[in-house]
């Protein structure tokens, strides 16, 4: 400890401290970073069970008949109407942990912790679907990435999705604090449902815009890119030149300056 204390004024001390701090932060982040949620297939359940769950967990914002609730000055909707949104919307919103929304904010974030079982979510979905017809949860086959054409999906993705979600699906900013989330780790079914139902500010890509085949191709593209090892090494979050520039300034320059300092220092 004494030796350590004596060297605390060594010029390299700050650099070493910063490095240690960075490594520690990285390690901590890796330990607590969000992991993809996993959900199995939905099973049929009674509408009645769904209604019960809905009344207990959702009705405070969406109204006892899912008709939506308005608060205060007219356009501040506490919860939109869910009549006609379909089982797909319920599966997406609850399956990704966005609903029930814990804290009001500009946007419901994806959560690690899913508060409901597959069965419960399916039941609530059945209840919502019983109110009015809407998009259903897609079949296993409809979202199977191995059955899609990744290259065609890529062309569709770049035109329809990349401007918000980034060409690698890393996410991007929208206006006033809203954002298009990262698509990595999202299961194919949820990607499909998001396109079909247009959650929050995302536009709806119904089958009349992007057909079922188009959607499966897009899923195939996303999963191919996600599962592909990075040929060149670390991707720096696939954020492009900003991340690369930051890396050059902090890490590469730091390394080279450290070498230069060593070079200019008198040998012992």
């Amino acid at each position: 400890m004494n030796a350590l204390a004596a060297r605390r004024r060594h010029p390299a001390a700050i650099a070493i401290l910063i490095m240690l701090g960075l490594i520690l932060t990285g390690a901590l982040y890796a330990a607590v970073a969000p992991r993809p949620a996993d959900a199995g297939t939905a099973s049929a359940d009674t509408v009645e069970m769904g209604r019960g769950l809905f009344l207990a967990n959702c009705a405070s914002c969406h109204g006892t008949n899912a008709e939506g609730l308005k608060l205060g000055d007219g356009d501040r909707v506490a919860g939109p109407t869910l009549v006609g949104v379909g089982k797909a919307a319920v599966d997406f919103q609850m399956g990704t942990g966005r609903m029930p929304m814990t804290v009001p904010g500009v946007q419901a974030p994806r959560m690690d912790e899913i508060k409901f079982t597959e069965k419960e979510i399916s039941a609530i979905g059945d209840y919502i679907a019983s109110l009015a017809p809407g998009p259903n949860v897609p079949s296993e086959e409809a979202v199977d990435p191995t059955k899609g054409d990744a290259a065609r999906g890529g062309s569709l993705f770049r035109v329809n999705c990349a401007m918000c979600h980034n060409s690698a699906g890393a996410g991007g900013a929208l206006t006033r604090g809203k954002y298009a989330p990262s698509l990595s780790g999202v299961i194919p079914r949820h990607i499909y449902e998001a396109m079909e139902t247009g959650p929050q500010n995302m536009p709806v890509f119904s089958d009349r815009n992007l057909s079922a085949t188009d959607k499966r191709d897009i899923i195939a593209f996303l999963k191919t890119v996600e599962n592909q090892p990075s040929p060149g090494g670390m991707t720096l979050g696939s954020l492009g030149p900003v991340a690369e520039g930051l890396f050059a300034w902090v890490f590469a320059l730091g390394l080279l300056v450290a070498c230069a300092i060593w070079l200019g220092k008198k040998a012992a």
Binding site: V159, V204, S206
Partner: peptide, 21 residues
């Protein structure tokens, strides 16, 4: 026409909330 599929669009295809390139 839809970009890039190059297929024509009917008015009823365009639902509220959707966007076509």
């Amino acid at each position: 026409m839809r970009d890039p599929q190059n297929t024509p669009i009917k008015a009823e295809d365009v639902t509220i909330g959707s966007v076509f390139h």
